[in-house]
């Protein structure tokens, strides 16, 4: 594949007169774990809505695995797996039924869907719980299941919008590590939105958003420059405010 796995080029978006994103650009190489860092209101959710084509940008473009999301939406969406902030599992339905539903949304049917579901269950180490209702699973398992489900159609880019919301510290750590492993072992590209500093590793790629603008783009270590990430971010946004 030529070029980055995910490229956001000059994207702007307004809600009425209020600017939500202003000329946002960054690119993520294949196999990288990229944290999209920003406090509440920074524009992360708006950017995720654009990345998942809930709405389209008025200016700029988004390229997924070489496909322009506006011009070739179907080819681009087929390369994306999304984990939303809000849970999207049907609690009343079984684990397997949830997986098969997702498979069908992504064009897998019959044996191909069965195989993908079985793979996802193996990945979760949950083959014996396939017939249980999702409501019987704990929060951490549900999130892992959403991640495994989103890999069923073998996407190359994984978008995760604050996927650890509402989970305890140990589970948060486990899920962050799990996605890091996926990037390292399977060459997946992950864009992980968060407002929590402890979810960003110092060696991770980091794009920081503040008030709809990119205020930093580099590695965690490069941006921190010897300080903690929190201090570095405070300094960056403070400087922006003064400017």
């Amino acid at each position: 594949m030529k070029g980055p796995a995910l490229a956001v080029e000059g994207v702007s978006y307004e809600f009425g007169a209020k600017s939500a994103l202003a000329d946002v650009s960054f690119a993520v190489e294949a196999g990288a774990f990229c944290a999209l860092f920003g406090p509440n209101g920074a524009g992360k959710s708006t950017l995720f809505s654009l990345l998942t084509r809930l709405f389209t940008p008025r200016a700029g473009r988004i390229i997924v695995a070489g496909h322009d999301l506006s011009r070739e939406p179907r080819a681009a969406l087929a390369r994306i797996g999304v984990v939303f902030q809000q849970p999207t599992l049907d609690l009343d339905l079984t684990v397997r039924r949830n997986l098969l539903y997702y498979a069908a949304l992504h064009g897998l049917s019959g044996k191909a869907a069965d195989r993908a579901a079985t793979r996802a269950l193996e990945r979760l180490d949950m083959a014996e719980r396939a017939g249980e209702r999702v409501s019987a699973l704990n929060g951490g398992h549900r999130r892992r299941m959403e991640i495994a489900r989103t890999l069923m159609h073998e996407p190359s880019v994984l978008l995760l919008d604050e996927p650890t919301v509402g989970l305890d510290a140990t589970t948060r750590r486990a899920i962050t590590d799990h996605v890091h492993t996926l990037c390292a072992a399977e060459g997946l590209t992950a864009l992980w939105a968060t407002h929590l500093f402890d979810e960003v590793k110092i060696e991770d790629r980091l794009v920081a958003l503040h008030r709809g603008r990119v205020v930093a783009d580099g590695t965690g270590a490069g941006i921190a420059a010897g300080r903690s990430l929190e201090e570095a971010f405070m300094a960056l946004t403070g400087a922006e405010r003064a400017a």
Binding site: T52, L77, H106
Partner: peptide, 9 residues
């Protein structure tokens, strides 16, 4: 939202 991320039209 999940449904709308499907690549079907």
């Amino acid at each position: 939202r999940l449904m709308l991320t499907s690549p079907f039209p």
